[in-house]
């Protein structure tokens, strides 16, 4: 039985009937999923009260494996679905799983407004720099000069620093971690889950099968090792003033503040409307 120190058995949180899963061998998304389930376990979050909302893409498929109330929605929109769900059911823990294309390209508008609103939702964005499910097209986080099926001569668009974006848009909690450091990633997700407002957690994950192959980055262990030596560079790191270091994409908790949570503020405002009407 595979149980680690914290008495965490990942199988307690997985839907056994959905195994085997569809991820490619070595895909970083499995590691990210494990870290999320471990964090949920550590916080003893009731599976019946857990709602996982995901979008479309390889990351979007993860919700189906979690033994909870799971909603696999439309491309780019999980944060918008989650906004309705969290407002209608403040008793639920709402977690969103999205990818870099889902969250930053087609769903970018919802991300910035979710950050601005600061409704209690924990958003995991699994960033593997690629549209994996559709076969490896360039995404808003693909590093410059990387090869993809739609950048055959190398990507010449600057890439997004998602955490800088989330911070600028007002998210109450912003953090980043790599799949190489599972306990650290778990702790970061935990901190995000415990944050009373909107929490944005970027997970630097590896698409071994599509991105790795295309860019000759070696096998999955080699890609994981690479995370150690080279935290992905961001085109914006020196050009936009951010609270981050300037040499590489920083990890850990990058932003945390106590801006008022939207749901509670919204309920207070509604109560005021009712009180005014009663006069």
């Amino acid at each position: 039985m595979f149980t680690d120190a914290a008495n965490f058995d990942v199988r307690d949180y997985l839907r056994k009937e959905m195994m085997p899963h569809f991820l490619c061998p070595g895909c970083g998304h499995g590691i990210a999923l494990r870290a999320l389930l471990w964090a949920l376990h550590d916080l003893a979050i009731d599976k019946d009260k857990l709602a996982v909302v995901s979008g479309i893409g390889c990351a979007g498929r993860l919700s189906a494996y979690i033994d909870a109330n799971t909603f696999h929605t439309t491309h780019g929109r999980p944060l918008a679905y989650a906004t309705g769900l969290a407002l209608a059911r403040p008793d639920l823990h709402v977690v969103v799983i999205s990818g870099d294309g889902d969250c930053l390209a087609i769903g970018g508008n919802h991300l910035i407004h979710a950050c601005r609103r600061n409704l209690k939702i924990t958003c995991l964005m699994l960033n593997n720099e690629i549209y994996g499910m559709t076969g490896g097209q360039v995404s808003p986080t693909t590093s410059e000069s990387r090869l993809t099926t739609t950048t055959p001569l190398g990507n010449n668009e600057p890439n997004f620093d998602a955490c800088a974006l989330a911070t600028a848009a007002g998210a109450g909690f912003v953090g980043r971690e790599v799949t190489r450091h599972v306990p650290k990633l778990k702790e970061l997700i935990k901190a995000g889950l415990e944050h009373p407002g909107f929490a944005f957690v970027e997970v630097l994950s590896d698409c071994t099968e599509v991105f790795g192959r295309k860019n000759d980055l070696g096998s999955s262990p080699e890609m994981i090792m690479r995370q150690k030596s080279e935290i992905r560079p961001s085109a914006y790191r020196n050009t936009v003033e951010t609270p981050f270091h300037s040499t590489s994409l920083p990890t850990g908790i990058l932003t945390q503040n106590d801006r008022p949570e939207y749901g509670a503020a919204h309920r207070r405002a509604a109560a005021a409307v009712v009180a005014k009407g009663a006069k």
Binding site: F71, T74, A270
Partner: peptide, 24 residues
């Protein structure tokens, strides 16, 4: 009940479905 003005038409539809999935 809850009223929210969303950031666009798409998210308004999505939020409505999300709320209904929550049971309202």
């Amino acid at each position: 009940g809850v009223f929210i003005q969303m950031e666009d038409e798409i998210s308004a539809m999505a939020a409505v479905i999300g709320a209904s999935m929550g049971g309202v």
